[in-house]
Write a protein that binds this DNA or RNA. Structure first.
Length: 581
RNA sequence: GGUGUGGUAGUUCAGCUGGUUAGAAUACUGCCCUGUCACGGCAGGGGUCGCGGGUUCGAAUCCCGUCCACACCGCCA
């Protein structure tokens, strides 16, 4: 036994006990005749005390300890004369009676403290040291808690966790696949799953009724702060259920998680149709921690001689509370912000709702006080508010205004990370049209069932068909999405046809699923949650990297092990692979 | 594929209207210090200013190219 206790558990009640601890030297405070050492392990920090009055040899040894040396000590728990209220073990210290240096350490390249001096680059390169930091470790503990409570909730509801294969078949739909060459089948490749979608549907055909899996998924697309090439999903599927059953069950799951992990009651999740979300928030994952919803001024602004608005398909406004005090400089800066290429607005029109009831706008040349008053009323603006208007093509202006709304929400402090607002977005369109090719593709995936009442539009107006598809959105983050699936072979065939698959292509790629559907496929549906995102949301972070033990960087590289890497010629030959020079 | 920001000591950064020997903080090393917990004091070592080219009497600083990191857009069924 290397230790009798850990570095986070000793308290006043242990005073007098002789204990043994093992851990890392976090810090040494040397006073010559006495030295304090902060000993760290996973559980906390305990102060060790060395004093020439007790033992000169041990003191000398302690003064030679470097940061991150691994030591084992035995000593007596003693009440401190000067207590430290900042740490849980701050009432006691250990008068060390023997010490064993288990290992030395090089000086770490950055400080291993909550507020480290290390940047992302160096932290990732030495991730094993970064993980010694309390806050990163807490993130992984949080991740464990979330996983544990997911399993707990689903286990109690008769779900079975089934593993599905990682070496599967590439499909051209959706994201790019990571591929793995097959040595035994020269010239052929496995693909890593983007999700276990088809397998979980096959499990439903097999009668597994209620399935889940906390599972790695792989997508070979560009990374973001909240996107990694390998990420984890809570993947779920159920048989003999309707959309309503699924929404209720997983609403229960998210409530359970918030209660158990955060001690928060998030209440009932409101439901919003996709159309409502787009109209009021310009976004299919609205952040409903604050209002500032879109107001349509198109009819009010036309015909007054302002050419920009007269030519616009859509004129949108949002009302920023108490922002009439904005300076010209601030508005100019905001105008530049919406004109950035990433947003792409042509300009920004603003209206001050002054305290005295008058209005001052950037388009006073064209609009009277009465006009501006009508706008303000339409927007529900009060004195002291600021209206921000954008105009243009409906889809574009909604997107731009959505960005502006989120930015203003951020600036006004409405996007508080300790507040959680969840909702369901439902009735997604089944299909989306590719702007360039004009081809239809599935908005969710090709196995999503259309709403029965929209089925007749399959040939006439595919874009208007709504799907039995739903997303769970929390604080503007899409944390999960799913659908009721097609379980009928004929309908699935029709879908493939609409999506531009020939019969041969459909059979080649999804024949196994079509075949399975010939043998009594039950009605089924499911959902998948982005586990990493859920954890980062719980942790109040924007990115998911610090909730993953060993993440990849922006270029998809693992900076610690330096992957990906080259293969030598022998390996390539064995795989029958030739590289382009 | 695109846009932006950055790359200077182990680390985080300042310096950038060109001009002696490139600074600070922190970390590190040594000495002093008996109650610290962001200990304190004194001293010290530490630099290919990402890399390549150009302009110039002179470049960390200006220009071009390139690599790397981060954020975003496209992309992510």
């Amino acid at each position: 036994m290397y230790r009798s206790h850990n570095c986070g558990e000793l308290r006043m009640e242990h005073v007098g006990q002789v204990i043994t601890l093992a851990g890392w030297v976090a810090k040494r405070r040397d006073f010559g005749a006495m030295t304090f050492v902060d000993l760290r392990d996973r559980y906390g920090i305990t102060q060790l005390s060395f004093n020439e009055a007790y033992n000169q040899d041990l003191l000398n040894m302690a003064r030679g300890l470097g940061r991150e040396f691994v030591i084992q000590i035995t000593g007596t728990v003693t009440e401190r004369s000067n207590k430290n209220p900042k740490i849980p073990t701050g009432d006691v210290e250990i008068i060390v009676e023997s010490m064993n240096i288990l290992n030395t350490s090089l000086t770490p390249p950055f400080t291993i403290e909550e507020e480290t001096d290390g940047g992302d680059d160096i932290r990732m390169q030495y991730r094993y040291l970064d993980l010694r930091r309390d806050n990163v470790r807490q993130n992984l503990i949080l991740r464990h808690q979330v996983a544990k409570h997911v399993r707990q909730y689903l286990d109690h509801l008769n779900f079975i966790e089934v593993e599905t294969p990682v070496l599967i078949k590439s499909t051209p739909e959706g994201a790019r696949d990571f591929v793995v060459p097959s040595r035994m089948n020269p010239g052929q490749f496995y693909a890593l799953p983007q999700s276990p979608q088809t397998f979980k549907q096959l499990l439903m055909v097999s009668g597994f009724d209620r399935y889940y899996q906390i599972v790695k998924c792989f997508r070979d697309e560009d990374l973001r702060a909240d996107r990694q090439p390998e990420f984890t999903q809570i993947d779920c599927e159920m048989s003999f259920v309707e959309q309503e059953d699924i929404l209720n069950l997983y609403e229960g799951m998210i409530q359970h998680l918030f209660k158990e992990v955060k001690g928060v009651d998030i209440g009932t999740l409101p439901r919003m149709t996709f159309d409502e979300a787009m109209a009021n928030y310009g976004n299919d994952k609205p952040d409903i921690r604050f209002e500032m919803t879109f107001k349509y001024l198109t009819d009010l602004v036309k015909g007054k001689g302002f050419p920009v608005f007269d030519a616009a398909e859509c004129v949108l406004a949002i009302c920023a509370d108490n922002c009439a005090s904005y300076t010209r400089k601030q508005l100019d800066e905001l105008t530049e912000w919406v004109k950035r290429p990433q947003i792409g607005a042509k300009g920004l029109v603003y209206v001050f709702c002054n305290a005295d009831g008058t209005y001052k706008s950037s388009v006073d040349k064209f609009y009277s006080q009465e006009d501006l008053k009508a706008w303000a009323e339409k927007c529900g603006a009060k004195a002291g508010d600021l209206l921000l208007l954008l105009s243009g093509n409906t889809a574009q202006v909604r997107k731009q205004m959505s960005e502006l709304r989120l930015e203003m929400g951020q600036r006004l402090g409405y996007r508080d990370k300790s507040v959680f607002k969840a909702l369901w977005v439902i009735d997604f369109p089944l299909l989306e049209q590719d702007e360039e090719s004009g081809r239809w593709h599935a908005m969710h995936h090709p196995f999503t069932s259309p709403k029965p009442e929209d089925m007749d539009k399959l040939e006439t107006d595919p874009g208007a068909i709504r799907a039995n598809a739903y997303d769970m959105v929390i604080n503007g983050v899409e944390v999960g999405g799913g659908s009721i699936r097609i379980h009928d072979k004929v309908l699935q065939g029709k879908m493939f046809k609409v999506l531009g698959f020939s019969e041969d292509e459909a059979r080649y790629q999804f024949g196994f699923l079509m075949n399975a559907f010939e043998y009594g496929a039950p009605p089924h549906g499911g959902i998948a949650f982005g586990f990493d995102r859920l954890c980062s949301l719980f942790g109040g972070a924007d990115g998911i990297r610090d909730f993953i033990a060993f993440p990849k960087n922006n270029q998809g590289r693992d900076m610690m092990i330096d992957a990906p890497s080259n293969l030598d010629q022998k390996q390539l030959d064995e795989l029958s692979i030739g590289l382009k020079s």
